Simulated assay, not measured.
Amino acid sequence: MNVVLDAVSQRYGLTLAMNRISLTLQPGTIGILGPNGAGKTTLLRTLATIMPPSYGSILFDDVQIDTEQKARSVRSRIGYLPQDFGFDPQMTVADFVAYAAWMRGVEPGEWNRSIDRVLEMVDLTDRRRSKMRKLSGGMRRRAGIAWAIVGNPQMVLLDEPTVGLDPRQRLQFRSILSGLDDAIVLLSTHLTDDVAAACDRVIVMHSGEVRFDGSVIALSSLSREDLPGHSDLEKAYMHVLPESERQV
């Protein structure tokens, strides 16, 4: 899959949440960094075709997504995990993931194998028959990751996926990302160490605009010793934000 955003803007009423963003996305893991209100979630929702652009255009494999019919045609190829995702509390974990498999067009005969595979990846095999309401917050987050990746979607959009995961589970999550080489993976996060460990490319957003787009190494090279941070990547991230955001 190849996805192109051309001067895409999004408004919520009078608020400009994304301002003329142009990006080309190809397979690989892309970290999206930025403070609260930077536009990260809005970008993911736009790519998930939940919100049509207020202005500009978005193309999937050279097809402009400008109608609801076209949006529906690409949704089966997208795995989207919002930061706060909904679920039927009476559903079992397996049923929750099966619903995602159905939405992505996985053949019913392949459901069990696909579900088993992703539940093993997120370490929830023993919770297959557990009700979603009985899971801890971290387990629900892992079930959400399984939801997002079942059926091998061509684009995976993850909004703060490591919230609630312990250090071992975060390492496991990074291992999962390494197995999604054929997909475009966008990882919205506040954690620069997740970006450093798992991402090929990083996009820094602020106030609905892209402040940096390049490799993790290129961003790290902008580090300055006089800036706050515990690593070169943290200091470089602070460097590309406006000076008003650099206070800790």
Score class of each variant (00 low, 15 high):
residue 171 L to R: 15
residue 197 A to H: 12
residue 210 V to Y: 03
residue 173 F to M: 08
residue 234 E to A: 05
residue 193 D to E: 15
residue 195 V to T: 11
residue 190 H to N: 09
residue 219 L to A: 09
residue 214 G to V: 04
residue 186 L to K: 08
residue 178 S to Q: 15
residue 169 Q to L: 07
residue 234 E to W: 01
residue 159 D to Y: 10
residue 195 V to Y: 03
residue 172 Q to T: 13
residue 194 D to L: 02
residue 229 G to V: 02
residue 176 I to Q: 07
residue 192 T to Y: 01
residue 158 L to Y: 13
residue 158 L to H: 05
residue 188 S to E: 06
residue 235 K to M: 03
residue 192 T to S: 06
residue 231 S to Y: 06
residue 217 I to L: 15
residue 209 E to G: 14
residue 194 D to H: 01
residue 167 P to M: 13
residue 178 S to M: 09
residue 181 D to M: 06
residue 169 Q to F: 01
residue 168 R to G: 01
residue 227 L to T: 01
residue 190 H to W: 14
residue 177 L to M: 05
residue 162 T to G: 05
residue 172 Q to F: 00
residue 215 S to V: 13
residue 183 A to N: 04
residue 210 V to H: 03
residue 201 R to Y: 09
residue 159 D to C: 05
residue 169 Q to E: 15
residue 170 R to S: 04
residue 202 V to P: 07
residue 189 T to V: 08
residue 184 I to C: 04
residue 187 L to E: 10
residue 217 I to F: 13
residue 214 G to M: 06
residue 185 V to S: 12
residue 197 A to Y: 02
residue 177 L to V: 06
residue 233 L to R: 05
residue 221 S to H: 13
residue 162 T to A: 12
residue 169 Q to D: 08
residue 169 Q to T: 04
residue 155 M to G: 02
residue 160 E to V: 08
residue 167 P to Y: 07
residue 200 D to V: 08
residue 228 P to V: 03
residue 208 G to E: 06
residue 222 L to D: 04
residue 208 G to F: 09
residue 154 Q to G: 15
residue 167 P to H: 05
residue 231 S to N: 09
residue 155 M to W: 04
residue 190 H to D: 09
residue 170 R to A: 10
residue 160 E to Q: 07
residue 228 P to C: 02
residue 212 F to G: 00
residue 219 L to D: 05
residue 233 L to Y: 04
